[in-house]
Design a protein around this nucleic acid. Structure first.
Length: 271
DNA sequence: CACGGATCCTGATGGC
DNA sequence: TGCCATCAGGATCCGT
């Protein structure tokens, strides 16, 4: 479910409200992708200092240590003073004096991991190999060009891998490549510098636009306050196989890359 | 190191 | 209605 825009929309929807809250209780349900890395009662009394995002991770900063939350494919976060009773797929809960943070994740590809600090090995294991943040100045064009030169794989797969640039998942990889007019199957290393520059700008525009639209709600994404996103309504290619391209009217095509669907316009996206 | 494929898990959907 | 196959917003691990 969640790519960078959905994670950022989630963050924006609860960060300012949870900040300052003191942890009153914490509980875990079924196992997520990795163990929490501490006993739940070690979190008692901690104060939530703020919530940041790195790639698709939410970093819940505590006065001592931090929690790394990942939503996997099907995760979502709720935050409210009072939440409805726990359901079968609610696997983590942090009750604070400002409200309750809950992670709902049917497929359990998500994770909650405690780390003593961002630099600690348990955090670096998850964050250490992440690529550049696309919506910050860290996303340097020259560096992007240099790094793509080292990758022979298809540009779509390089974007998804997250070790060059983070946060671009299956929806926004297709959308960004459409915006840049690039065929998803092209080898990253063979893209001309001007085309990479176009892609660099496209990624930023597409992601920023998606955040502004509240993310994409395909089946069940909503922010921590329950708001649906509506980026999917303006998607140019994702989920539009067979429909007319919004620019040139050609039917949108689909293909499989690394067991994921890719959508593209055969006319607008040049080989 | 870079690459492609298998893998974790549950639920929705479509064909027969 | 049931059963089976396929697909779904991710990312790690493993063999080459």
């Amino acid at each position: 479910m969640p790519e960078l825009p959905e994670v950022e929309v989630t963050r924006l929807s609860f960060a300012y409200r949870i900040a300052g809250g003191k942890v009153l209780s914490a509980s875990l349900g079924k196992a997520l992708r990795w163990p929490l890395g501490c006993a739940c009662n070690q979190l008692l009394g901690r104060v939530v200092v703020g919530v940041r995002r790195r790639g698709k991770y939410l970093l819940v900063d505590l006065d001592e240590g931090l929690l790394l939350l990942h939503l996997g494919m099907s995760g979502s976060v709720s935050f409210a003073e009072q939440l409805p009773p726990k359901g079968v797929h609610d696997h983590f809960e942090l009750v604070t004096s400002h409200g309750t943070l809950r992670l709902h994740d049917p497929r359990r590809f998500g994770a909650v991991v405690f780390a003593r600090s961002e630099d600690a090995p348990e955090a670096q294991k998850l964050l250490g190999r992440l690529g550049m943040e696309p919506l910050t100045d860290q996303f340097d064009l020259a560096q992007f060009q240099d790094q793509l030169k080292l990758r022979r794989a298809a540009i779509k797969q390089v974007l998804l891998a997250g070790n060059v640039v983070v946060g671009v998942g299956n929806i926004y990889a297709s959308e960004s490549l459409f915006a840049a007019g690039i065929r998803p199957t092209l080898s990253a290393a063979r893209l001309s510098r001007p085309r990479v520059a176009k892609l660099h700008a496209a990624i930023r525009t597409v992601l920023a636009n998606a955040v502004a639209k509240g993310g994409s709600t395909l089946r069940d994404f909503s922010s921590a306050t329950g708001e649906s996103g509506h980026f999917q309504l303006s998607a140019m290619v994702y989920g539009r196989e067979g429909q007319a391209c919004r620019v040139c009217q050609s039917p949108i095509k689909t293909l499989r890359q690394g067991q994921r669907s890719t959508f593209y316009c055969p006319t607008c996206q040049k080989a």
